[in-house]
Nucleic acid binder design. Sequence first.
RNA 1: GCGCCUGUAGCUCAGGGGAUAGAGCACUGGCCUCCGGAGCCAGGAGCGCAGGUUCGAUUCCUGCCAGGCGCACCA
Length: 650
Amino acid sequence: MEGHTYHFYNLEKQLQEKLWEVLKGEHPPVLDKEEIPLEVPPQPEFGDLSSPLPLKLAGTLRRPPLSIAEKMQEALQKDLPPLVKDITVTAPGYINFHLDYTALTRSFFDAVAVEKEKYGETKGGKGKKLVIEHTNINPNKAAHIGHLRNACLGDTLARMKRKQGYEVEVRNYIDDTGAAVADIVVGLYHLKRECPRDMPFDRFCWDLYAEVNRLYEEDPALKEKEREVLRQIEAGDNEVAHLAKEVAGKIVGHHLDIMWHMGVYYNLLTWESDILHLGFWEHAWEKLREGGSLVYEEEGPNAGCWVVQLGDLEEFQDLENPDKVLVRSNGTATYTAKDIAYQMWKFGILGQDFLYDRHGLQPNGTVLWTTAPYGNKMTRFGQADEVINVIDLRQKYLQDVLRLSLHKLGFEEEAAHSIHFAYEVVSLSAATARELGVEVEEGKKEIYAMSGRDGIGVKAGDMLARMTKKATGEVAARHPEMTPEEHRKLAQDIAIGAIRYYMIKYNMNSIIVFDFNEALSMQGNTGPYLQYAYARAANILGRVEPEVAEEVDLRDISIPDELVPLERELIRRMADFPTILSRAAQLLQPSLLAEYTYNLAATFMNFYEEVPVLTAHPHRMRFRVALLQAFRQTLGNALYTLGIPAMLRM
RNA sequence: GCGCCUGUAGCUCAGGGGAUAGAGCACUGGCCUCCGGAGCCAGGAGCGCAGGUUCGAUUCCUGCCAGGCGCACCA
């Protein structure tokens, strides 16, 4: 991993190194460099960073921690670490590092001035190809807020990884041959339902899907129609198959519209029908049989099937039947089998490729490609070093089967680089469920699951519309001088910011209990709060005299000897950005970046209230203008990475 | 039955072997003669239960209790 040239970026690592060297000089090493504890102290008197290392050592060294701390302090002071001005010791045994803020600020300002919109980027992923697959909505009904969580997480992840230097290929997988689409076809073709002219097709299908599933319960013969439709879709080139393709195409159009609106973009659409017709599974089948890891069962519950045996793996030991059927006794392949073939293709080990076509230009100016039955050969897709599948936690077992099957079938390397990005689902609060017409028993349950089959859920489009409407009201009240068109534009950006932030601020393994009241909030820890901080900073900068603005240069602005606490805190937070961003990207935790950005904005809000900029003494004023320039850049970069629009007024 | 995840303030969530456990919402009370009140300040209240490891546990381990989700020759 290529290092960063600015000291502050690796500050913690450098301190760990120093402490380790000092430790090593005195005793045989008792712990690894990475295990040396370092924390942000609770009070400013204890410095900017401290280490309770002496406390940890006291036991093994059989010496009082305070005397260990003093000994280490002495050694460290002989050769101070970079950016450290002073080292103190406090009871019961902490070593405190006080930073040289003049040097830190200089170094940080220089980084921002040079890197501008690239400030925060690092190079850990350089030269690596990463495939991220997300969204993957069944093309048979309107998208709901659960799909929105998937897309927002996936898109933020892609943005974070690109900032680490990865070549990221984002794709959206369309299952256009499955039962979900077949159910819509049953409704249109067999039940002769028609979409009213004034109704968007995806909304019509939302209701139709629920209706058809309700009718299956009453009428088993209709369920038989579903199987018939599935057979026809699989056979291809008939009236029903064409209808299915048309349905899927129209719905995907709606899905893409809303995702683009949210600032979510893709590189490639992959269609299940193309995988089917190109015979991906048959290719995989041949390869796997050559490998000899597929087993044909002569007897037992899986008699007549080809299976992959997972029973000797730790994860599956306690399962009743740990073997996974890939080919049924009737000779057809299971879904997992097709998934294995597709995953093999992502890594470029299938020996078979799609044909491609241009799907169209996305609003951000990039081309969206699609797999196509009569397309062209292209070499740019696939061949991943690493694959991340963004799928909710309920599919953990299946994703484990996929990964471990790859492993057992001889693709250890690929299995190790197959990552299931698992996040919890979005459910509904009792209040919101009631609002949607779900029967809610008072005080019984507080969480209600969404269900496409039952037609229960908050549609992404409805959420966006309500958010935009609310934001329009707020903007209009604040800016009567603006035109309705300007109100609408600002409100859209605010709505996007609010929704995206809401979708990623939670830890991945916490269920989002969606409640309209909370989700529509624009106060406190929300997207609009972050946008407001940006607008406020921009507002001050816009009032700076032009000749002053001209003259302030981050690279040579003079830095006051004494900084007020809020100036220091703001600088510390901003200087942390590259570290936090790369940590969030590496740990696959967008919520870490969201939390950081909120804290950055909150620190600025405090600064804004207490520290005058324009009315400060000229020398100080110039420094604070520089500080705000750096802040606007840093917050702007963070917001961009989160996909949250930043605007000058709101 | 087996496996995974989760129990932190009235509510929604952060955090995580170490110095008084943090935010937001809600509630109460303050703050625009001063860069935009989508803001700021102040207040109360919290680590499910029981053991264990440790100088030190809310954090790690074990058990229990409570909740959620998985465990197809479905996709």
